[in-house]
Design a protein around this nucleic acid. Sequence first.
DNA 1: CGTTTTACATTACGACTGCAATGCAACGGC
DNA 2: GCCGTTGCATTGCAGTCGTAATGTAAAACG
Lengths: 213, 213
Amino acid sequence: MSIQLQCDNIEGMPKRVDHRERRDLIAGALMRVAAEHGLEAVSLRHVAAEAGVTSGMVQHYFRSKDEMMVFALSVVREHGAARVAAAVAALGDDPSPRTLLRTMLAELLPLDPARSADGRVALAFLAYTAVRPTVAAALHQDTAAMLAFVADQIRSAQVTGAADRRVEPEPAAAGLLAAMEGLGVYVLGGHYSAQTALTALDAQLDLIFGPAG
Amino acid sequence: MSIQLQCDNIEGMPKRVDHRERRDLIAGALMRVAAEHGLEAVSLRHVAAEAGVTSGMVQHYFRSKDEMMVFALSVVREHGAARVAAAVAALGDDPSPRTLLRTMLAELLPLDPARSADGRVALAFLAYTAVRPTVAAALHQDTAAMLAFVADQIRSAQVTGAADRRVEPEPAAAGLLAAMEGLGVYVLGGHYSAQTALTALDAQLDLIFGPAG
DNA sequence: CGTTTTACATTACGACTGCAATGCAACGGC
DNA sequence: GCCGTTGCATTGCAGTCGTAATGTAAAACG
């Protein structure tokens, strides 16, 4: 038997370059194209041009366009997760459930150009996966995890809170998460202003946690 | 001066056929294609084939693809409006604000295959217009009208309701509308079940109008 | 040192795209 | 009855698409 000594690569990796790095580079270009012109403007040549590489190189790192799309979707998810993690980390220890949720959800709203670009890509992928259910599994996981987390936070606030304003955690969490998503969509579409969205989010939290939390 | 006698057509219309009818036929085919394969699968030939006509005919009724897309978007809007109007009409006289809103919003959720197809098309157009702001104006109007209506309903319920659970109508309406949109998106993406979405919607209404309205 | 593998670049191909051009039958108005 | 307009079909074109094939330079490996 032969023992494979794989220093830092998981797969049968190349000689010099870091595959992950190149794929991230390409995925970044894809996201820029998608954010500006939509997912239907994403082509191998277009992405390659945006990334400043040849389309042959893109083809070298992704055997098909679909593989590239799936990878880019995973990068979008990681983007969002990292954003939320950073915002939560900056919150210090032991934030109240309401503060924690408000921070996380507000971070996922497209309130500045950077997040707006990410949001447009995410929205494009949302429409994309709605028609290709096979690649939506990862998104399902994300939503399910978020939903469970939000419900937990609501539940933990209920225990210590007043008993007169009791709400069911799961439906409230589902509604809150959906409200966040909808607010994001409306802000991206220009139907709501950033201010409107934030106010609505706070009002939503007021409804769940009681006013002036 | 010459008086134009235009019996039932608004524009300089053809000899025999009803332009509007043909355009609706084509738009219907477009929506079917978009619902099944996404908006990026919408091409003149594809739509023509789905409609059972030649692509030359499509070209005859729409001078460009963009014109066809814009028209289809307007049809999607009318679809939704008609759906809501029908649901409200079936409600009888003087429904409570809560019942009225619940009926309208639930009607816009993709809870059956027909509404799901419409929803996929609407979602695709949402992503489409997010990148082409010039064609989003009509959608803005719809959202603004809905927002004002929902806020009015909430306000009118406040007047007659108990004073202890007062909520600001505008942010609550914005949140409720966004929640509906987000629920729809999540159901379309398969992240929420229809049951989850309905339960969340009712919970949301509970939060605004008080439990067991 | 020679061979294999990796990292790209280039080119080609068939399919598809939106759209313009053209053809043609039929009906309306004069 | 002729003629122009309208309704629709067909064809062609320039361009883009995804992908496969091929070429080349260099590093890795025995």
